[in-house]
Simulated scan of single mutants.
Amino acid sequence: MIVPSLSRQDIDLLRQDTPGVGQVIHFNNAGTGLAAAPVLEAVKQHLDLEARIGGYEAEAAARPALDTFYTALAALIGSQPQEIAYVENATRAWDMAFYGIDFRQGDRIVTGRAEYVSNYVAFLQMKKRKGIEIDVVEDDASGQIDLKALKAAITPKTRLVALTHIPTFSGLINPAEEVGEIAREAGVLYLLDACQSAGQIPLNVNEIGCHMLSGTGRKYLRGPRGTGFLYVSDTVLDQIEPPFIDLQSANWLDDNSYELVPHARRFETWERYVAGQIGLGVAVTYAIGFGMERLGNRTCALGAQLRSELSGLGAVTLHDKGKRKGGIVTFTLDGETPARTKTRLAANGINVSVSTASSARIDLPHRGLDAVVRASLHAFNCEDEIERFVKALGNFN
């Protein structure tokens, strides 16, 4: 079944609810900072309440809104509310899962070339600490992780398959469901970095087959910065120990013992950005209201349109890869560094980002690239903005 994309009325509402949309075209990191109006209002209201009655009192009054965060996130990714933890950002959420695994010397981690820099340096630290080994699976001819090579790379020593669903430096959407099937057949843990995919495309942890999934609020979900979440399946709680605990994650029983709280909230800390948690819950509810299938279709279609338009510019080289591509479009302009392209676009009221080899050391240099321009489209972007973008690039030559 083909799910219809957004109507013109839906797009107008999205843009109306996006205060940052206007003269500046936001193609930078999925509109980071461009929170929906209901999200901004929810955060501001709670901060005002804190100012009036105090932080503890405001948190107690906001308990229903805080609880909504768990039910909304569970609905977004197809899990149960008790399998969701609120964490301050996607990297720390991923860390809580990864560092919670009791790696032993000789254990192996299997990953791909699209793995995010923060994740890979964590692999290297664990290699230094525990003597684990890292197996990097090559891409297939399309540019996505090679599924046959992945299956062959898993050995009895493999402890974890770690995959970045959508890398920050390419339009690639990795085949997370097929990877999940391989991990399930092999009986190994599967950790999915959904930082770029949460809010960009539909997610269902049961269909994906991952045991752990991390995400952020500030990208495609359009929630507040300083917010993130972690999903940990109840089925693997006995295999993952929170790397650190506090009075939120554990109960102090007596002078010599404690017990972890049930379910995924053992990965939380007591102190948190309460207004942010409320705002993220509102952002997720907002996205669900439009329908993630429809938002995803719209975002991917805009990405495809921009690639098609850019392919007609002789001086532009596209660098996206994979069988399936999303709303992130990467390219370079002949004779100009990506940093310079970004500066020139900004002078034309167009915001983009740059991904460098330092954040993709096992991918971009492997393809002979030092950096790429990254245009991240969201469902609130419109076709007229794509035309202005392409025209601006054409005028550079």
Rank of each mutant, 00 (worst) to 15 (best):
L6F: 13
L14D: 05
Q16P: 03
T18F: 03
V21W: 13
Q23S: 13
A36E: 05
L40G: 10
K44P: 00
H46L: 14
A51C: 06
G54P: 04
Y56I: 10
E57T: 15
A61N: 03
R63Y: 11
R63A: 15
A65V: 00
F69M: 11
Y70M: 05
A85S: 14
A85P: 07
A90C: 14
A90K: 07
F103L: 00
A114W: 03
V117N: 10
R129T: 09
K130Q: 12
G131E: 04
D135S: 14
Q144I: 07
I145H: 11
K157N: 08
T164L: 04
N174C: 04
P175S: 06
G180W: 10
E181K: 15
E181W: 03
E181I: 08
R184F: 00
L191P: 01
L191V: 06
Q196L: 10
G199F: 09
Q200V: 00
P202W: 07
N204K: 00
E207W: 08
G209Q: 02
G209V: 02
M212T: 02
G215Q: 02
R222L: 08
R222E: 06
P224N: 06
R225P: 01
T235V: 08
E241S: 08
L253A: 09
D254V: 00
L260Y: 07
H263N: 13
E271T: 12
G281T: 07
G281I: 05
T285M: 07
E293H: 10
R294Q: 12
G296W: 10
R298S: 11
R298F: 06
L313F: 07
V316W: 02
L318K: 07
R324V: 15
R324C: 09
T330F: 08
E336Q: 13
P338T: 02
T343K: 15
R344C: 06
A347R: 14
S353H: 09
D363M: 12
A379T: 06
N381P: 03
F389T: 07
G394I: 07
F396I: 12
